[in-house]
């Protein structure tokens, strides 16, 4: 079993998965931030590959992409960051999350080789549905990297089955119809859909999009195997003073962790 599934299976508590965009606000802060997130309770890290046209992202993560690109962050740099992170941390899984074009242009084979060398655990390509992904998935698997796919409120039972069959590691359930960082999450309908998905799979289910504070994280923690928080963190990276980010960001994560543990410790 992969480091990714081990992590989610072995631990009793609901996992907390923070997302940050690689290179935001500057490339040299990314690895220190990753370590700080782990110290503050991150179980897995989702690292965003910046892209010029992030069509599934709300304004917060769009601007993070723009800052990272303006700072010169390239896909090869992102892979180097993971490699550097691994020098000190061999246990926390790292999942790359991004759009297909940079990976296509690098070439599937060289991307997968570099990702394996950097000990990337999983890859989630937002605009690559399973229908178009068979070649890429085969390559990822043969390099011990988990292909991770999204499930959405609009996903039909037939598609849930197909997507579960192509996914390793965990499933990422998009909690709402909208872009990242939206504010219309409905916990009841998320719970219903997660229950539906569980009929088709034994894979852990992470829930993301729209989890903006500790209270929401705690609620989602009760119904999922992992809580994924992106825009709420990236928003703070954007607004907090840059020289204090290694304190303010972990502090926010601890807040989420505590709220989640407080709710789940009674279970």
């Amino acid at each position: 079993m992969s480091r990714l599934t081990d992590k989610l299976r072995a631990q009793k508590r609901t996992a907390l998965i923070p997302f940050i965009t690689a290179g935001d606000p500057t490339p040299n802060l990314t690895v220190p931030l990753m370590h700080a997130l782990v110290d503050a309770g991150a179980d897995i890290i989702e690292l965003g590959i910046p892209f010029s046209d992030p069509m599934a992202d709300g304004p917060v993560i769009q601007r993070a992409s723009e800052r990272a690109l303006a700072a010169g962050t390239r896909l090869s740099d992102v892979l180097k960051m993971v490699k550097t992170f691994r020098e000190q941390n061999q246990t926390t899984p790292v999942v790359l999350m991004g759009y297909l074009n940079p990976i296509e242009i690098m070439g599937y084979k060289s991307f997968v080789k570099s990702a394996q060398a950097a000990k990337v655990d999983g890859v989630l390509t937002v605009d690559l549905p399973p229908e178009e992904a068979s070649e890429f998935c085969t390559l990822l698997r043969s390099h011990a990297i988990a292909p991770i796919f999204l499930l959405a409120p609009t996903t039909t039972p037939e598609r849930i089955k197909r997507i579960c069959a192509q996914t390793d590691g965990y499933l990422y359930y998009v909690s709402l119809k909208g872009v990242t960082g939206s504010a219309n999450l409905d916990v009841t309908s998320v719970a219903e859909k997660v229950a539906e998905i569980r009929q088709y799979t034994k894979l852990p289910i992470g829930v993301g999009f729209g989890i903006k504070d500790a209270e929401m994280a705690a609620q989602i923690a009760q119904i999922s195997d992992a809580v994924i928080v992106g825009s709420a963190i990236v928003q703070r990276i954007e607004t907090e003073p840059q020289d204090k980010l290694l304190e303010t960001i972990p502090a926010f994560l601890r807040e989420l962790r505590q709220a989640m543990d407080g709710m789940t410790s009674n279970v």
């Binding site: 069509m55 599934a56 605009d127 178009e132 999204l150 959405a152 609009t154 996903t155 998009v174 119809k177």
Partner: peptide, 18 residues
Amino acid sequence: HGHFGIYGGIFVPETLMQ
């Protein structure tokens, strides 16, 4: 599936597939 040779297809976030 909307392919013209290797081109075309459907490359969108999951929410839009249905």
